[in-house]
């Protein structure tokens, strides 16, 4: 247990976020709370505000109304000395993979927050990076330029970087999208390990089966919270129709959610059309 003395309890109260000065409401009056060490899957149609929720949680988009409490303290009110470790694994398309940095460099960036101004990485930092690389099974790629990696390897670099941050709360935006089976399994394995370490995990995904099978709780989101709780409670026909609307249909007792082209958030290049199946 790495953080036994710092339980990452996350509570969100009446959170609203808008873009373009209130012209477009992305999140409406969101409230939910996550106990320490919980694995939460965030699901909902494209454009439901999943990425926005994550960005609000790390302070990347301004909060219009509501509050975010971590460790029972409001976001941004934490002292530097007890610097919060909220790690965010963005979607892979969000960085320039042609940038001249090595795998090692990228993972080391996870340590920069705790390092302080003008300071060079210490032995401790390098060891943390090494551990993260080993954990994600990419230590052989440490000196490779990131541009030469496959999609799955890139994903693991991001995960290793998040690990190197030694997070209390880990946010992952679509980590299962467009990756190979090996990487998906490695990611799920990592989630188990992190849970065992007491890390709180919040992961967005299109894969409802995965959400049901591998997560403790599900947050069903479509601008506001449709349902939140254990997968069995959340994935009811009524809830899914409320979340996905006409994109949900039933074929011989199985619910199919055709989420291919809804909303305005474009899919990652090379992503397979999201045809998700869930037992009724």
């Amino acid at each position: 247990m790495l953080y036994s003395n710092s339980p990452a309890h996350l509570e969100i109260r009446n959170l609203s976020v808008s873009y373009n000065n209130g012209a477009r409401r992305a999140l409406e009056n969101i409230s939910f709370s996550v106990p320490q060490g919980m694995r939460v899957a965030v699901v909902g149609p494209n454009g439901a505000g999943k990425s926005t929720l994550f960005k609000a949680l790390v302070g990347l988009v301004p909060i219009e109304r509501g509050e975010i409490f971590i460790h029972d303290a409001a976001l941004g009110a934490h002292k530097e000395s007890e610097r919060l470790r909220v790690a965010y694994v963005p979607q892979r398309k969000e960085v320039d993979w042609r940038f001249p940095v090595s795998v090692n460099d990228v993972v080391m960036m996870g340590r920069y927050g705790a390092l302080g101004w003008f300071k060079r990485p210490t032995k401790r930092d390098r060891e943390a990076v090494q551990r993260a690389l080993v954990e994600m099974n990419i230590s052989n790629l440490a000196n490779y330029p990131i541009g030469e990696l496959s999609g799955g390897q890139q994903q693991r670099v991001f995960l290793a970087r998040a690990l190197a941050q030694e997070p209390h709360i880990l946010l992952m935006d679509e980590p299962f999208t467009g990756v190979d089976a090996t990487t998906q399994e490695a990611t799920l394995e990592l989630l188990n390990q992190l849970k065992a370490q007491g890390v709180t995990l919040i992961v967005s995904t299109h894969d409802l089966n995965l959400a049901a099978a591998r997560f403790d709780r599900v947050l069903l989101l479509n601008h506001s919270v449709i349902a939140y709780g254990a997968p069995a409670q959340v994935f009811t026909t009524e809830n899914l129709i409320r979340a996905f609307g006409t994109h949900a249909m039933f074929v011989e007792g199985t619910m199919i959610v055709d989420d291919c082209c809804a909303g305005d958030a474009p899919h990652t290049l090379g992503e397979s059309p999201a045809l998700e199946l869930i037992e009724r």
Binding site: K55, V58, G59, L60, R83, V86, A87, Y88, P90, E94, V95, D96, F99, V101, D105, V106, M109, G110, Y112, G113, L115, W117, F118, R120, R161, Q165
Partner: peptide, 22 residues
């Protein structure tokens, strides 16, 4: 030289920089 790592992370991944509270 002094701001090497800060400028690097801001240029490469501003989202990470923000989550690192830079």
């Amino acid at each position: 030289v002094l701001l090497y790592k800060e400028l690097l992370v801001v240029s490469f991944d501003p989202v990470l920089a923000a989550t690192l509270r830079l």
